[in-house]
Design a protein around this nucleic acid. Sequence first.
DNA 1: GTGAAAGCGCTAACAG
DNA 2: CTGTTAGCGCTTTCAC
Lengths: 341, 341
Amino acid sequence: MAPTDHRPLTLRDVSEASGVSEMTVSRVLRNRGDVSPATREKVLEAAKALGYVPNKIAGALASQRVNLVAVIIPSLRNMVFPEVLSGISNVLETTDLQPVVGVTDYLPEKEERVLYEMLSWRPSGVIIAGLEHSDASRAMMRAAGIPIVEIMDIDGTPIDAAVGISHRRAGREMAQAILKQGYQHIGFMGTKMPLDHRARKRFEGFTEVLAKNGIEVEDQEFYSGGSALAKGREMTEAMLERSPELDFLYYSNDMIGAGGLLYLLEKGYDVPGKIGLAGFNGVELLDGLPRKLATMNAGRSEIGTKAAEIIAERVADPTKEVERIVELSPKVLYGDTLKRR
Amino acid sequence: MAPTDHRPLTLRDVSEASGVSEMTVSRVLRNRGDVSPATREKVLEAAKALGYVPNKIAGALASQRVNLVAVIIPSLRNMVFPEVLSGISNVLETTDLQPVVGVTDYLPEKEERVLYEMLSWRPSGVIIAGLEHSDASRAMMRAAGIPIVEIMDIDGTPIDAAVGISHRRAGREMAQAILKQGYQHIGFMGTKMPLDHRARKRFEGFTEVLAKNGIEVEDQEFYSGGSALAKGREMTEAMLERSPELDFLYYSNDMIGAGGLLYLLEKGYDVPGKIGLAGFNGVELLDGLPRKLATMNAGRSEIGTKAAEIIAERVADPTKEVERIVELSPKVLYGDTLKRR
DNA sequence: GTGAAAGCGCTAACAG
DNA sequence: CTGTTAGCGCTTTCAC
C-alpha cells in the first residue's frame, strides 16, 4: 500500500463519489431543506463509505454559527464543578449546543487567557463561575455580544445574567443555625485562598451574624494543597489542642469537615454533644461517613441546569428577555453533627 | 447610545484603526515575521483599544492548523480522570496546544458521537481512554491522520500508541500480594459495569492467580450509582453477613474500599488481623482515613504527562517515531490493611 | 519590512 | 427538489 497522502476528505470528495452537487451533499449531511429520499440515500452511502467527517471549521466560518458554549470553572478537582457540568450537559444535550470546558485554577490571569482563547472560537454563549473578573475579562465578555451567565454566586453585579446562591446569606444562615442550637465557642477552618471569593463571602456572612450576637470566631486556621480530608484531620487536631474550649467547628468545605469528623469520632469525642461540626456543599461523599456531617446544599446541578437553560433560550431567541438574577436558596442540612444538645 | 449592531470585530477593523494593512496586523498579532517596532506598537494599541479578539475559526481554516487536542474520557466524577487531565494540561501548557475534553459516560455510542464531533474540528491529536472502541470509532481515528494516544490500559492493540498499565497484571500482582500474606477466603466488590473493561481485566488477572493457587473468590457483589463510599459500606455489611468466613475483601476502586474500611473500623473488626482490605487507584482521599487502605498506584498523572508528550512530539515532527506502547508499572501499596498477620 | 491576491471548505441566498 | 455563485475572516504565497 502506497503511503496515501493524508489529505482529509472534503465535501467535494463525497460529491464526486455520489454524483450529487456539493450543495445537496451539504444539505443531506445537515438535514436541511428537502432532498429526495433517493439522492439522500446515495449521499449518505458515499459519505459513510469514504468515512467522511464534516469540517466544522469551514462550516462555522461560512454559517457564522458555532454550536459551542464556553464553560469556565476554577477546577475539576473540587467535586462541585463536575456536578455543575453534569447539569449543563444534561440540558445542552437536548439542544444542538455543546459545552467546552476551560479551567482557571482560581487565577484571574489564567481566567483571562482561557476566556480569550475560548472567545476566539466564537462560541454561542459563556457560562463562567463567579462574579469577580478582571476588567479585561469583563470587557471581552461584554464585547462578545453573546449570552453570558455567571454561576455559583449572586452577591454582586452580573455582566448579563447570574444563577446561584448568595454565599453571604449561606454564611449567615449557618451561623444562625449554630447559635440557635446553643453553641458559643466557634472555630473556623478553610482554604488559604484570597481568590476564593465565595468562601470569603460565606465567612463574612458568618461572622456578621456572630458579631450581632456578641460572639467572635475564637480560632481559625487555613490550609492549601494536599488531601483535603487529611488536612481537615490535622487542622482539627491542632486547633483543639490550641483551643480546647471550642464547642463548634465550621469548615469551609465538606472534605475538610469530613476529615475533622473522622478524627473526632476516632478520638471518642461526643459529637454533636460536646462539639458540633458543619461543612459546606452537600457532597455525596458524606452519605458514606459513620455520621452525617451537617452542611449546606448549594444546589449545584440545579445551577448548571438553569444556566444552560438560559443560554439555550437566548441562543434560540436573542431578543428574549430572561431573568437577570436567579437566586437559589441554600438549605442547612443538620445531619448528625449540628443538633439540639 | 445607539444600539450598536454587534458585528464582531475583524482584522480589517484593526487594520483601518491603525492604518496598517490587514496582513501586517495579522503578522503582529501572531508574532510572525519581521515587523518594525513602530508599526507593531500601533497595531497592538489599536487592537487593544478596540478589544479585538482574533477569529480562530477563520485562522484555522486558512492555515489548516488547529492547536486543539481532543481528550476523551468516560467521566469526570471518578477523581482519576481529573488527575490524568492535570498531567495533560501541565505538558500542553508548555506548547501552544490546548486540551478539549469530551465525556463518554462509559457508553460506546456516546464515545462515537463525541469523537465525531471533536474530529469535525480537526484537532491536532487525540488522547482517548481505553483500547476498546466501536469499529466506526477506530475507523474515524485511523482515517483522521493525526496522532492518537490511547491511555490507561495497554492490554490490547493500540490504533497508534498507548500509555498505561496492564490491568491484568495489576490484578495478578494484587492477588499475589494477598496470598503471600496468607489470606485465603476472598470476597470481591466492584461496579456493575460490563463496559468498564479495565475493571474487568483486573478481575480476570486477579482470579487467574487465585486459581493457580487453588483458590476461588468466595463471594462477590456489584453496585451501580449512588455514593461509592456509602455503597462500599453497605456491600461490605451485606457480604460479611452472608459470608462471615471471609478474611480478605478486594474492592475494584478505592472509594468503595474506603467505605468498607470505615464500616469495619466502626464495627470494631480487627483490620488487617482478622480481615484484610485492598482497593485500586491510590486516590489522595485515602490519606485522610483513620487507617490507610491498601491499594495500587496506577500512575494517573504520569499517564497524562506521557500521553501529552507523545502528542506534542508528533505534532512538532510528524515523521518522528515514538514508542507505540508505554507501559507503566502499577505498584502495590500495602498501607495498613494488607499486612503480615 | 510591507502589501496584494488567492483560497482554505463550507453554507446563504438565490435561481431554476 | 437541485444547482450556481459568492464570500465567511483569516493566512499563505509571492511581489515589491
